[in-house]
Amino acid sequence: MYNAVFKRAGLPWVYGARDLPEPAQAERFLAERDFLSINITTPYKPAALAAADVQAASARLAHGANVLANKGGTLIAYNTDGQGCVASLEREGVTFKGASVVVCGTGPTSLSILHAVAQAGPAEVVLVGRSVERSHEVLRTYADELGGMVGRIVDMPALREHHLSFAEVYKQVNFRYGSYDTSRQAIAGADIIIDATPLGMNEGDGAPFDTALLRADQTVFDVVYGHGETALAAAAREAGCTFFDGAGMLVGQAVVTVGILRDITETAALDIPEDELFAIMADAAGFDR
């Protein structure tokens, strides 16, 4: 995806993979800082955040980074998961404004998505996980950190038209929490359900919650893709839900990353319209769009 964009922009940059199976190797690679930008995936997002010199709000609120950008030797941490998720769903016609949204999971991907969903203007967002206590702790920390940001700095404006600023999220969006067992009513009543857990990446994985709760008029999104049909995907389709997997999110977060590279390098050649970027990257990845 990235190499297709670099080619389109006429840049000599190359995106590749680096096999670093041992933590010490990864630490040395980061310390050398011989890269412009890298992507990080589960379970190393918290470690990537800790390695950064500067933490963007997106990474700080998520407690994990999936992008490290090198600006003159300074490592800046970002988390583009949430923006990529919301942008890909909005591209498919999903409307968050005024909706009830359930986000499954309590890790960095879930928190990134939780915040991006909240910025899209829902009536409420419910964070659910295996434990009520864990969901409460994670949501309370997020709310405290968001409130601290709102209190310390000039309000950070919305990233997209019709979305909410940080202060508007803090003041307007109703956040709730629970477990898969205690939030059955919230899951059954949700307009949009987002599974941000890794369930489905391994054979035999079940869905995070009782899929008998699904209704035909719900939109269901699973961050997992490329591992065959997950249990949640199968159940959502059987229930008649509108279902999307994580392929669009992968492209969406990559589009955001290109914007980061454009900004930190001031490379005008990367000033490509978002729709065109999405098309270039989706085609390169072999995804339908």
Rank of each mutant, 00 (worst) to 15 (best):
S112R: 10
V125A: 04
R91I: 08
P122K: 06
A77P: 12
G93Y: 11
D81Y: 03
G72T: 01
A87Y: 11
S110Y: 04
Q83Y: 15
S88W: 03
A62E: 06
I76Q: 05
S112Q: 08
I76A: 02
G105Y: 06
G73A: 00
L75A: 00
F96Y: 09
I113T: 14
D81N: 04
N70Y: 00
A65P: 03
A123N: 10
F96K: 04
A120Y: 09
G93Q: 09
T74M: 10
V125I: 09
Q119E: 15
C85L: 15
R91H: 12
T80D: 09
S110D: 13
H63D: 12
E124Q: 14
G72M: 00
S100L: 12
A99R: 14
E124N: 15
S58R: 12
I113P: 08
V54D: 03
A118G: 14
C104N: 13
G121L: 08
A69D: 09
T80R: 02
A57K: 11
F96D: 03
A116D: 14
S88Y: 03
R60Y: 12
V67A: 05
G73S: 00
F96P: 05
T80S: 10
V54F: 02
L61I: 07
L114Y: 14
C104R: 06
L61H: 11
E124I: 12
K71S: 13
Y78C: 04
H115Q: 15
V125M: 07
I76T: 04
L68Q: 05
K97V: 06
G72F: 00
E90A: 04
T106Y: 04
A69M: 01
A77T: 06
V117T: 12
A118N: 12
G121E: 15
V103A: 09
A62F: 07
V86K: 08
L75M: 01
S58V: 07
L111F: 05
I76E: 10
A118L: 10
A69V: 07
C104T: 12
G72C: 01
G72W: 00
C85H: 13
G82P: 06
D53H: 00
T80V: 05
Q55H: 13
G105M: 07
A87P: 07
T106N: 14
L61W: 15
T95A: 15
T95S: 14
Q83G: 10
S112D: 13
Q83S: 08
S100V: 13
L68E: 08
Q55K: 13
G93P: 06
G105S: 08
S58T: 14
V94D: 08
G72L: 00
A87T: 09
E90R: 08
A65F: 03
L68R: 01
A99Q: 09
P108S: 15
A118V: 11
A120V: 13
Q55A: 13
